[in-house]
Design a protein around this nucleic acid. Sequence first.
DNA 1: CTGTTAGCGCCTTCAC
DNA 2: GTGAAGGCGCTAACAG
Lengths: 335, 335
Amino acid sequence: MKVTLKDLAKEFGCSVTTVSRALKDNNTISLELRKKVKKRAEELGYIPNIVAGSMRTGQTKTIAVILQDLRNPFFSILAKYIEEFASNQGYSTFFITTSELIDREIEAVYTAIGKNVDGILLLPNQKDTRSIEILRRYKIPHILVGRYFSNLDTDYVIANDQKGSYLVTKHLIEKGHQRILFLNSYMYISSAYLRLEGYKQAFLEANLPFHENDIIIVSTDRGEACEVINSIFSKKQEYTAVFTYCDVIAFETIFTLNELGYHVGKDIAVAGVDNIHSDIILPIKITSASYSRKDMAYEAVNLLIKRINEGINNESGDHYEHRVIDISLSLGQTT
Amino acid sequence: MKVTLKDLAKEFGCSVTTVSRALKDNNTISLELRKKVKKRAEELGYIPNIVAGSMRTGQTKTIAVILQDLRNPFFSILAKYIEEFASNQGYSTFFITTSELIDREIEAVYTAIGKNVDGILLLPNQKDTRSIEILRRYKIPHILVGRYFSNLDTDYVIANDQKGSYLVTKHLIEKGHQRILFLNSYMYISSAYLRLEGYKQAFLEANLPFHENDIIIVSTDRGEACEVINSIFSKKQEYTAVFTYCDVIAFETIFTLNELGYHVGKDIAVAGVDNIHSDIILPIKITSASYSRKDMAYEAVNLLIKRINEGINNESGDHYEHRVIDISLSLGQTT
DNA sequence: CTGTTAGCGCCTTCAC
DNA sequence: GTGAAGGCGCTAACAG
């Protein structure tokens, strides 16, 4: 069963305080006692109750990551690195998923605060900023990851989305494609907005006409892109290439085009963003805008821990930090 | 800043207990007061401190999932469902990764216990059973997921690994393959052992000779299977099919064979286990043994919560439950 | 209906 | 060197 400081104190006939200090190697306790106590604690399998300790110290050594969906490899890989870096710095990690639902995001924030986390990494749904307001009110250190609000300044770590999208579109245009279907995500998501900007930028630069109708909004829910591709490509149309908001949508696109009898990489080009392949080798490597999720996680965790420590030392640090991860083009077999 | 019961009590000039009860809609408190307190709590943004409450009640409404690597889609999809089901039942979820290192598994168990989790889902590394022993000593409810120990009875939820492997191998044999390279995982992992049994079973049943050398052990670390496939298939060899421990290894196999100039699905067959495609649509669908990760997560979470509740009600329940998820063959483009 | 007391396990402060 | 007292925020048991 559970072993507490009290149990140890009883054994040694001393006070809980003494045991606590002995285990912490506090030099106000005789070396002999320290040794004996530590040995006995080991034998009994004493595990310090961090939760109890946190009531006094205020620190739980826990962070929460609020994100959309762990099924999507983009998020799960990011999650992997976040957990790894946090763990290396002595922090445990809660993951709370929202399925892109704003109410669940708010719930998630309440849960995280109720569990006394020291800080939060938030991949916001962006439908509104309520969750940020709650975090501010409660003064919980928090960093946005992957997305930011143009009308609300915060700390954030994002990728250079516009550049990535621009590079991919430019590549497709250079390959001779003039009508490029763009399966984008919802425009209130900052990365979707920026990726559209990059797409437009490449068209503008190439002096090609830009068609508003070539942009279709899809979610990343399993199968949604399949349906859209199916309905467009089973009819006559003019697209010779498809550019997608992210690799997961590109995967569905490629799968469906294959099923429709297309030969992706020859008859039609497909490219995405995220370059999942750099973390998980998949059967085929697709052309994609590539940036390091590892770096992104690293920056996010470090910035968050920095903010947590500032809070503890009561430093003001009233300016927000914005970190942008560079992005490049990674060619694959699909363009 | 933080709002506590004390703050509310001060406002109303009543005791903390009264406020606590009012917020819990306890009918010993006058309806009027209950309403007023709840309204004010809402206004002030009161968030109950679950951690503090847990010190008295003993329940943190938190579980930990100890698993190998969130980058692997198999684990991340399982993680997604676990988080979802746990969350639906009011539990938060810690994920702690071990990278298949037994020392990190032990560390993970200590961390989880130190954070007072109510229960643990463990995907064990199986190099030894120390972590289970610790969990037993501390009487922490725990369920093994995906793997079990043949020499140590516990609660567990696994897939029917032998059947899955048997079905895939049988399918390959029926397609005319006689020399099937098997990229398996380490034999101390129960699922690897069972998948080998299934493979052997199919050969035996078909009266085909079984070659010990056709089995090669690889880890799921990124790129390891690529290297093995490269070294085997760049030389002359007799294999017309490759069967892999899991889809992630199959993906690497297919990618590498493509690079070597093979046409997977025509020149050579590849099949795996997990059927990731059922959760994430990938560019190609591979032949794979399929079972529901959703069911697996559901069973695991429910069994764990059942055990947690038994612990609270001090029921004995000294028999272990074993749940086996059924598995079937899912055909793809690669065989 | 409401309040008081006590305590979960730990740590900090002050006293000896 | 060591201990006692107090408190983190909350809730359960017992009073009234």
